[in-house]
Simulated assay, not measured.
Amino acid sequence: MIVRKRGNYFILVKQHDHGLVAGEIAAHINEPIQPLAKTLFAISHHDVGWEELDQTIRWNEEKNRPYDFQDYPLLPKLEAYTQGIARVVANDHYAGFLCSKHYASFFTNETDPAARRFREQELTRQHQLREYFTQTEEENIARNFRLLQFCDKLSLFICLSDPGENRNLWYEDGIFYQGKRYQWIWEDRHRLRISPNLFIQSFTLDIPYQLVDAYRRLVGSETYTLQVLV
């Protein structure tokens, strides 16, 4: 889950829904993407492994709030990562490779034995998957991996921010991509744009979310609609 506080309530956005937002963002970026369909599938489905975990709201007793994607217990999270990557690989080797590379990058300097095993497992998977790549796919690995990471951050900013407000400390200095710094700018609670612009045209983002109170009760499920302007 992506979790943010609003008064006495918690706003919860499921990880896969955030991933779909990242994919929609990528689909509107004004730059060539090769291979297009496989890369967009990877970006849209990079968090598909969270689907089962996010069916249940797991409570962090120490912090008295729902667990989010950062502090969720490591072992079930690693299992979800592994299963999610396998699901993407089953659809396409190249998309699965990009997702595997994304998750392995989380644990580059990790000392936890389970996390280290996960990283080694994914590096082995990546080596095996590369045997299937075309020359075009191979040549675009680095570029498409950076695009996945960039769109992931663009989506995280939106999902972690209260509409119309730039209070996200993660990205207060912008998000860097291809040597440039990009910043989301709110026009109002339902419209925002990115500066400098990098989109082909304006588009709409639909973000489902759940509302949970301090007594751990699910009190509502809604969809927030944003217009991204050029």
Rank of each mutant, 00 (worst) to 15 (best):
E62R: 12
R58M: 11
I57F: 03
T56V: 14
L40A: 05
L53V: 11
V48F: 08
L40D: 03
D47R: 08
A42I: 04
F69V: 10
H46L: 15
D71C: 06
D68P: 00
F69Q: 06
E62N: 15
K63H: 14
A37F: 05
A37T: 11
W50N: 00
L36V: 03
D71P: 08
N64T: 09
D71K: 03
S44L: 08
E61H: 01
W59C: 04
H45F: 12
I57H: 02
K63L: 13
D54M: 00
A42P: 12
L53K: 02
L36E: 07
Q55E: 13
T56M: 15
K38E: 14
I57W: 12
E52H: 03
G49C: 04
W50S: 01
D68Y: 02
G49A: 07
E31I: 00
H45I: 13
N64R: 14
V48Q: 10
E51Y: 00
V48I: 15
Q34S: 07
A37P: 01
P66V: 02
F41Q: 10
L53R: 05
N60A: 00
P32H: 02
E61M: 10
P32N: 09
Q34V: 14
K63V: 04
Q34L: 15
N64P: 13
W50K: 01
T56I: 09
T39I: 03
H45N: 14
V48R: 07
V48A: 11
V48P: 02
T39F: 05
E62T: 05
P35M: 11
R58N: 15
E62L: 15
D71Q: 02
A37W: 07
D71T: 07
T56P: 05
R65D: 09
D71R: 03
R58E: 13
I33P: 03
T56G: 08
P35L: 11
A42V: 01
E62I: 12
E51R: 10
W59H: 07
D54L: 13
N60R: 03
E31D: 01
V48C: 08
T56Y: 13
S44C: 06
L36T: 00
A42Y: 03
I43F: 06
T39A: 02
D47I: 04
I43V: 10
D71G: 02
F41Y: 13
L40H: 04
S44P: 12
Q34E: 14
Y67A: 05
H46N: 15
F69N: 04
L36Q: 06
A42G: 05
T39V: 01
E31R: 08
A37R: 02
H46T: 11
D47M: 12
I57N: 05
R58Q: 15
I33Q: 10
G49M: 13
D54Q: 03
E62W: 04
S44F: 10
P66H: 01
Q55D: 11
D47K: 01
V48E: 12
R65E: 07
D47H: 03
I43N: 02
R58A: 07
L53T: 04
L40K: 01
W50Y: 09
H45E: 14
D68Q: 07
E52A: 12
P66E: 11
